[in-house]
Design a protein around this nucleic acid. Structure first.
Lengths: 221, 221
DNA sequence: ATCAACATAATTATCTATAATTTAAAGGAG
DNA sequence: CTCCTTTAAATTATAGATAATTATGTTGAT
């Protein structure tokens, strides 16, 4: 009945992570343990542990006796995360390729379709993450997959901040190209597309709430 | 006066990490917070935080209400860590290559010499880590460097477990080849050697305490 | 009167001590 | 021997105390 297998620190960390990724908590914002504790109806000890978890994911940064803040996220870090994802996802795909079955590829295709049908950024991001996870999980390298998951969270964070106001549905050509190569057993080609896909960072005009057009950095994949 | 800039949790985590890496604490060993707390003359709250730090480094594993254990480290994980290091260190080297100066290369060479002079595994490991860090730090990607550091700790852990009893000094040809390529500006070649160097996993007869010879897996780099 | 340096107060992080859940183990009845 | 109850141990959470940092205010000098 009681499905509270999760510890309270993990709950708090998960909720705060969502807020950081979604942009509700802005970069540099202070996280005061007493306030967070009060909000969650908890003591400050599990809150401290939650902070450590966020720190491990790279979503928060702690200065020894000066408190913890939401991690900054400038363009350099976006590029850094993108390059790390490219390197690690290619590695995962290469190791997964031997274990990919038609059923898995079909499930990945379904995730792509789900992405096409998405009507907001959140839904698209969920589908996109599912696509990558379906393809990479068969590599059977838990540490690698955990690292990739953390990088995905960081990417999503930027995605939301860039595309918060205007979002348009689009078909994902890269996803389909990856699947097509994998069906033909062309692992190198699939890996090359994945690397480019993840690393692609472009500029795109974004319409702000005030109606002014400005340039924003956009990362896809 | 008081140079205790480091928090108590960090101290404990650092000490426990050393013990895990050195093999003093064996894989699967339970870490009971009360005992650790008593040993360090602390309460169990900072101990719990230390556990979270170790978990983030991949040195310990926590099952929600069943305690934390020293992370297992079988051959699959050794290979996994090696492949991740290859991917990430190559990425770091490529980004660092533009910022490498003759002075930096000289410092790296000095680290290699230090490794040659090393008379035990610990000294060699320290020098080896220094070599890699000197070459990669100029990439200016803090998140990437932190990830590599954690992977180095995991590698060192295995290194110590394999070479605990018998250790022989040896010159490191790969390090010198990497430096030579970099001096000539041959980044691709340097990266290729680095990838092979880090990923190289061989077998080596190891003499156990009981005098019996068995096969052990050995990772270098 | 303005600014700097020092001391004091308030805020916040860190740690200790203690209580309450939960899991693992031991003992006893069917 | 199996299953259920009881007991013990360890993890998790709470509340309170301590120590460090930031902010504030006062004094003194230029």
């Amino acid at each position: 009945m009681n499905e509270r297998k999760e510890t309270k620190a993990a709950q708090i960390a998960r909720t705060l992570a969502e807020r950081i990724v979604s942009g509700m908590l802005e970069p540099g914002a202070r996280l005061r343990q007493d306030h967070v504790a009060e909000e969650f109806g908890a003591s400050h000890v599990p809150v401290r542990e939650a902070f450590r978890l966020l720190e491990a994911q790279g979503l928060a940064k702690n200065e020894p006796r000066r408190g913890v803040r939401v991690a900054a996220f400038d363009l350099n870090q976006v590029r850094e995360v993108a390059e790390m994802r490219a390197a690690l996802e290619v590695l995962a795909l290469r190791n997964a390729s031997q274990h990919l079955t038609p059923a898995i590829l079909a499930a990945a295709e379904e995730a792509t379709l789900e992405g096409d049908r998405a009507r907001d950024v959140t839904a698209w991001e969920t589908a996109n993450r599912r696509f990558h996870r379906i393809l990479l999980t068969p590599c059977g390298m838990p540490r690698l997959l955990a690292a990739i998951d953390d990088l995905h969270a960081a990417s999503a964070r930027f995605l939301f901040s860039a595309w918060r106001s205007n979002w348009e549905t689009r078909t994902d050509r890269d996803h389909r190209a990856i699947l097509e190569h994998l069906r033909r057993g062309e692992v190198d080609a699939a890996a090359a597309v994945l690397a480019r896909h993840v690393q692609w960072i472009g500029r795109k005009p974004v319409e702000t709430a005030s109606g002014k057009r400005r340039e924003a950095f956009v990362i896809e994949g």
